[in-house]
Each structure stands twice: as C-alpha cells, then as structure tokens.
Computed example of a mutant assay.
Amino acid sequence: MLKVTAIAAALLLSGPALAQHAHGAQKGPNGGPMEDVAGVHAELVVSGQTVAVNVFDEAGKPVDTKGYTGSVMVVSGGDRKTLQLTASGNALTGQAPGPVQSGAAITVVVKTAAGKSGQAKFSAP
C-alpha cells in the first residue's frame, strides 16, 4: 500500500513539472495567445485576412524564422481552409481568402530549421 501511495504522490507532484511549458491563456508580447510548438513559443496574431505566428525562444526573445515552414488550418462553421505560411523575420505569415472570423478554430503546424515539428490549436480572437 505504501508503494501505491508513493507512486500516486509522485504522479500528482510531477503534473505541474510536465505542464510547465503550457501557456494556455497566456498572451504573447503582441497580444495573441501563446503555445509551445516544436520547442519554441508560438504566438498567434490574426488581423483581418492576415494570420501571423510570431516565434520566440524560451527566454521570450524573437527567433529568426529563416528555414522554418508552417501552415494553418482555419475552421469556421463548415468552412475549412489551409494556408501555407511564409517565413519573414521572427514570424510565419499567411493570407486567408477572406477575414478570419472570431472564434474560428485554428491549428498551427510549424517545422523549425532544425527539422523539429509540432502543432498547436488556437481559437481566433
């Protein structure tokens, strides 16, 4: 019984350590929501038709996106669009065919210059 209690305690105490990089409702420097993607911090900023994913390191400093690739899938109601993102400075940007609706589900896929890839889900502001 002591062994089971010790394992349960270890799992409960390790939860915060495992989740320490999740940003959830945390806002980035440009006011957009942030999540960890492929070992970097990604901030989603949507303005009209423009979708930008600003990239930061662990210390919150902008990362040059040269060599990065990415895409976003925007789902609003029954409408689904996939946009390719282009690296520019410390962001990956793309243009939707029309304004991105507030509340749209946005899935961001990023591949770093080092080949590490990942995805995160956001809700458009």
Rank of each mutant, 00 (worst) to 15 (best):
M1G: 15
M1H: 12
M1V: 09
K3C: 02
K3M: 08
A6G: 01
A9K: 09
A10M: 14
L11D: 10
L13C: 12
G15S: 10
A17Q: 05
L18F: 13
A19V: 03
Q20D: 13
H21K: 13
H21E: 13
A22M: 07
A22R: 11
A22Q: 12
H23T: 05
G24L: 10
A25S: 12
K27R: 14
G28E: 09
G28D: 10
P29N: 06
P29L: 14
N30F: 10
G31Q: 02
G31V: 08
P33L: 13
P33T: 10
M34C: 08
D36A: 04
D36T: 08
A38N: 00
A38V: 00
G39A: 00
V40L: 05
H41M: 08
A42C: 09
E43W: 04
V45I: 03
V46K: 02
V46W: 02
S47F: 02
Q49V: 10
T50Q: 14
T50D: 12
V51F: 11
A52Q: 15
N54K: 15
N54T: 08
V55E: 10
V55C: 08
F56I: 03
D57G: 08
E58H: 08
G60P: 04
K61R: 07
P62C: 05
V63E: 05
D64N: 15
T65W: 07
T65N: 08
K66S: 15
Y68A: 03
Y68E: 04
Y68Q: 01
Y68L: 03
Y68W: 06
T69R: 14
T69V: 12
G70T: 07
M73K: 14
M73R: 15
G77C: 06
D79A: 14
R80V: 14
R80H: 09
T82V: 15
T82G: 03
L83P: 00
A87T: 04
S88G: 02
S88V: 04
G89K: 04
A91T: 13
A91H: 03
A91C: 07
G94P: 06
A96R: 07
P97G: 15
Q101Y: 01
S102K: 13
G103N: 01
G103H: 02
I106R: 06
V109I: 05
V110M: 11
K111G: 02
T112A: 08
A114Y: 01
G118H: 11
G118I: 10
G118M: 08
A120N: 11
A120L: 01
K121N: 15
K121F: 10
A124C: 09
